[in-house]
């Protein structure tokens, strides 16, 4: 049998089980639930803080998210910030050993529909990222914080998010790509 770390892909059931068990560990050892999108607020707030610290200190959202009990701020470079930064390395290790690391600017499904322009893809990625985080902060979490962590705790907030996210994703994909024929090749790499 091949060394699993050398495989390009693992079964989604194996990966899902792994993420589920990782959640047990974060609850048991760290008293935390997996999440990523709060760190974007911390990073944006810290960046703005370098030029306008009073503005950040006076903003209700930064103080609500990172405010410490006795005034001032909790550490911005916290558990989740370390987590999100190390995700990049974890993924790199997986890609490197699986020989799937590849510099890619325009994904194939995108270029089949919208052409090979890097500028066009980057513009869409920027706008998409903007909308994504705005929505995540409004909902109070993203695919990991709400979708997985909240979903497994059976939180009402998270399942509302999950259903709304899938419904709107399906509608957006239909608008952008059309409904398409079923004959099209699936499992594009």
């Amino acid at each position: 049998m091949a060394n699993p770390i050398r495989l390009a892909r693992w079964s989604p059931y194996v990966v899902g089980t792994g993420i589920g068990i990782l959640s047990w560990a974060t609850f048991y050892f760290m008293n935390k639930a997996l999440g990523t999108s709060t760190s974007f607020v911390g990073a944006a707030g810290a960046a703005i803080c370098t030029i306008a610290p009073e503005h950040v200190a006076g903003n209700a959202y930064y103080t609500q998210t990172y405010g410490a009990k006795g005034g001032g701020f909790k550490p911005v470079f916290d558990w989740q910030m370390a987590l999100v930064l190390m995700m990049v390395l974890g993924s790199f290790i997986a890609a490197w050993f699986g020989q799937t690391f590849k510099v890619e600017r325009v994904p194939t499904v995108w270029s089949q529909r919208f052409g090979p322009s890097v500028l066009k893809r980057y513009a869409a990625a920027f706008i998409g990222g903007f909308i994504l985080l705005f929505g995540a902060r409004m909902a109070g979490g993203c695919t990991s914080g709400h979708g997985i962590s909240g979903g497994l705790q059976m939180a009402v907030s998270s399942w509302m998010f999950f259903v709304a996210m899938f419904a709107s994703g399906i509608a957006t994909a239909a608008v952008l790509f059309g409904f398409g024929s079923k004959k099209e090749v699936s499992h594009v790499q």
Partner: peptide, 28 residues
């Protein structure tokens, strides 16, 4: 939760990653 989820879904399909998978995608 609902409005945020609806906005999030639009962003996820345009970007093609969610916040966590975007970070991991940088690594590949």
């Amino acid at each position: 939760n609902v409005l945020g989820g609806l906005i999030f879904g639009v962003g996820m399909v345009i970007l093609g990653y969610c916040p966590g998978t975007a970070l991991a995608a940088v690594g590949q």
